[in-house]
Simulated scan of single mutants.
Amino acid sequence: MSTTETAQLVDGSGLAARTVEETAARAAEIARRTGTSPCLATALVGEDPASVTYVRMKRARCAKAGIRSRHIALPATTTTAELVGVLKGLSDDPGVHGILLQHPCGPHIDERAAFEAIAPEKDVDGVTMHSFTAMSFSSPGFVSCTPGGIMRLLEAYDVELAGKHAVVVGRSAILGKPAGMLLLAKDATVTYCHSRTVDLPAFVREADVVVAAVGRPRLIRGEDIKPGAVVIDAGYNPGNVGDVDFTTARTRARLITPVPGGVGPMTIAVLLAQTVEAAARQLGVEHS
């Protein structure tokens, strides 16, 4: 690709809208056949403004998709034991089909202990160790929503992954690590990089697919993108800035996700789709 051309933009908003439309149709079918609408329970500790906004947005999207939502608002003083008790209660409730713990929960909460209190069959956010294991072994389960959204985007744009070199920049338990495992399952050769990687640009320059998920604005420079590469920017930093220097990267990449409008919309779409799938499994409804 010459420097006078620009990459094709990946329309995450469009694919997310189609995904939610399909999800709403499936939710309506489940309700018609069982008399029960899929239900997503959200739990939030404290009143962090960003988290409150995220939960409100997710509940609004649920309503549009025909998914009931139940919200558990907990005070900032909630202990790990109390939060675990709430999540176990939701796990045991047959009226709840999916559970979302909005994080971060605060420094006093053991988030891993809280996540593990969510029953695997209701882990529609893909945050438990059970779900990560299922992803790693390509077994039935629920994927982490952002990596799951990334894979749907790559599939929608017919990105060939078999034999390609994918570089994942980031190693978080619910984004970087599972993204790499999902890419590996599609026969990509995967390299994990992170904040302590020596000479990160050297790895990026060799990548056919770059997944940026480290949470550092414009960490990945456009001049380091391999001409014709696919760039998936899962970073979201203040000022609507991703982890990739978008302006320069789009002159070298073949495909690139914008921020916002790329990966973000797909995260919620996958959450809704997995909630409906969880309800279908729990209620014994097969695809018609």
Rank of each mutant, 00 (worst) to 15 (best):
R61W: 01
E155I: 03
P94F: 06
Q274Y: 03
G235F: 04
H194S: 15
E121T: 05
G98N: 03
G35Q: 08
P260S: 12
L44H: 15
S138R: 06
I268H: 13
E21F: 05
A81P: 04
S51I: 08
F246G: 05
G180A: 08
F137A: 14
T275I: 04
V96S: 15
L271M: 09
D199R: 14
R56Q: 12
F246A: 10
E47S: 11
V167L: 11
A76N: 14
Y236K: 13
I30C: 06
S172F: 13
C193N: 04
V211H: 03
A173H: 10
A113P: 09
E160G: 11
A31V: 00
L154V: 02
A162W: 00
G141W: 03
S136P: 11
E155S: 12
G106Y: 12
V168Y: 11
V10D: 01
I118D: 03
Y236V: 09
I99A: 11
L255H: 11
V45A: 02
V55S: 08
H103I: 06
S37A: 14
A234S: 11
M181W: 10
A117G: 01
T77A: 13
A24D: 10
E116M: 03
A81G: 01
K88S: 11
A249N: 07
A173N: 07
Y54W: 07
E206V: 01
I232Y: 08
T257W: 07
S195T: 09
S37H: 10
E155M: 01
K186S: 11
V214D: 06
L182P: 09
A188N: 09
G126C: 04
L219Q: 10
L83M: 06
Q274S: 12
A269D: 04
A41E: 08
T251K: 15
I232H: 05
M266F: 00
A273G: 02
S69Q: 05
S138C: 14
E29F: 14
A280Y: 02
V96H: 13
V190T: 14
V20D: 05
